[in-house]
Design a protein around this nucleic acid. Sequence first.
DNA 1: ACCTGAACACCGTTCAAGT
DNA 2: ACCTGAACACCGTTCAAGT
Lengths: 228, 228
Amino acid sequence: MVKKRIRNPRREESLSRAQIVQASIELLDINGEDGLTFRALSERLVTGAGAIYGHVANKNDLLTAACDAIVARTLEGCAAKKTPKSNLRVIALGLFDALDAHPWVGSALMRAEIHRPMVRILERVGQQVRALGIAREQEWATVAALMNYIIGVATQNAANGQNASKRGIDREEFLGSIADAWLQLDQREYPFTHSVAELLPSHDDRVDFLSGIDLILNGIDAAKRRQR
Amino acid sequence: MVKKRIRNPRREESLSRAQIVQASIELLDINGEDGLTFRALSERLVTGAGAIYGHVANKNDLLTAACDAIVARTLEGCAAKKTPKSNLRVIALGLFDALDAHPWVGSALMRAEIHRPMVRILERVGQQVRALGIAREQEWATVAALMNYIIGVATQNAANGQNASKRGIDREEFLGSIADAWLQLDQREYPFTHSVAELLPSHDDRVDFLSGIDLILNGIDAAKRRQR
DNA sequence: ACCTGAACACCGTTCAAGT
DNA sequence: ACCTGAACACCGTTCAAGT
């Protein structure tokens, strides 16, 4: 008896890159970084794994595109309508919340090279820093300080939330377990870590995040004062 | 004819975790992040792949341990003997150079959770920030700003160097290719990015890195002045 | 007790075959 | 021209078999 291979019929409408990117975002939101595989993706799109390669160069390209879509949407929602400082706070908080909602974006953003999504953030932050009117030689370092602070702290915060929910506990409980680990370290070797361990579980992430932004903005003011 | 399975003789001295971590560092230095596989590692250690699991929980544990070894060695070389500000500069530059020499450390450091290597850096930076004598409520944000700046910028710099050498060009040429890509963006949508593109290839990474550190330290001074 | 290495259940990516 | 899906060359991890 000959086995008859039954091949699924050809899909009627062709795939689009936007469709693929949107499905990727959904998979990443549901299952995190590991949730994005070509098998899961082709199943969700009801197509063959190979078909995706017609619209996307490889997995890294796909992850970058998904990340870029989130960043673009987020920044669109942050109109620059007030003072530069207040605009910077709005951008920072917008990204903070976006990374919290899509925890995989943080690590995608930090993956090597200065990709398109990074350039979007660079441009938005850079415009506002320039509007502050500081010396050109200081601009680059200032923008770098702000961007790294925003992305670094927001990514860490998102990872904390994700780790907590993965273990079925809330953020405070999760931070408490980290604090416990810190308190087990040798007190003489780790005095600073010991002393901040107690504060860790109860601190308000968004408030602390914003006060760090203000700290850097104060540094900018100090630099401006000095150059006069 | 019966095939006689020839099994390699049992290794005489047992494996140690330190040996495994050192071999991992060597693989990572040679071939980057992808260079670390259990097959390559067991070949280098002349053992079976499974044997490694007696000393290491999984691949992530192994990568963290390798990263931790580099960070620990680096910080040991940064004795805190002068003023807090100057100590912070020494620590920052030490990490900058270590990540440049081992480009895989940056991404390992940024991988989720606040691991041991991160705590080492937290402690060193925290001690010096505390010595600056700022208000306790500001400490956390200050330390976060410094740590994220140091790790973020150093990681980006290391990735640039690695990407350049991977493509057989030098750092300046590589940054030049990024600048070209930036100049292709719509000038009206990306005015800031356009205006800094020219400066990108020629800027001195270490000098810019240090001036960012000073910017944050200035913010600390400003905060201190305000609280008096 | 600890190592050995085949086996397992996955990956990303390719490409002949189909429509 | 574009999709389909088996095949390929890898992974990390496990575990029966060996010493």
